Amino acid sequence: MVVTDGPYAETAEQIGGYVMIEVAGAEEAIEFAAACPEEIVEIRPVVEYGG
């Protein structure tokens, strides 16, 4: 019997590293991602809170 916490990967298995870039918009982010040598690239917006 195998017991797991759920259908989710452990953090160590899922995150190999990340790169945060600052671009003008989604179109520029897509262009940047297309030029990356990695096979899988995720684009996620970052929410900045003033304070």
Results as ranks from 00 to 15, higher is better:
M1I: 14
M1D: 12
V2P: 11
V2E: 12
V2Q: 13
V3C: 14
V3P: 01
T4N: 11
T4I: 14
G6P: 09
G6K: 02
P7M: 13
P7L: 10
P7K: 00
Y8R: 14
Y8I: 11
Y8C: 10
Y8W: 11
E10D: 10
E10L: 05
T11P: 09
A12T: 08
A12N: 03
A12Y: 02
E13A: 06
E13V: 05
Q14T: 09
G16M: 01
G16L: 10
G17F: 03
G17D: 06
G17R: 08
G17K: 03
G17Q: 04
Y18H: 06
Y18P: 09
Y18A: 09
V19P: 02
M20N: 06
M20Y: 06
M20P: 02
I21D: 03
I21Q: 08
I21V: 08
I21S: 08
I21G: 04
I21N: 00
E22G: 07
E22H: 06
E22S: 14
V23H: 00
A24N: 03
A24K: 02
A24V: 07
G25C: 03
G25Q: 05
A26K: 12
A26T: 12
A26V: 15
E27S: 02
E27V: 09
E28R: 08
E28Q: 09
E28P: 08
E28H: 05
E28C: 02
A29R: 07
A29C: 04
I30M: 00
I30E: 01
I30N: 04
F32W: 14
F32L: 05
A33R: 01
A33K: 03
C36Y: 02
C36Q: 14
E38S: 13
E38N: 15
E39N: 14
E39F: 01
I40N: 15
I40L: 14
V41D: 00
V41M: 03
V41Y: 05
E42Q: 14
E42A: 11
I43G: 12
I43D: 10
I43H: 14
R44H: 15
R44D: 09
P45W: 05
P45S: 10
P45G: 02
P45D: 09
P45C: 03
V46E: 13
V47D: 10
V47Q: 11
V47E: 07
E48S: 13
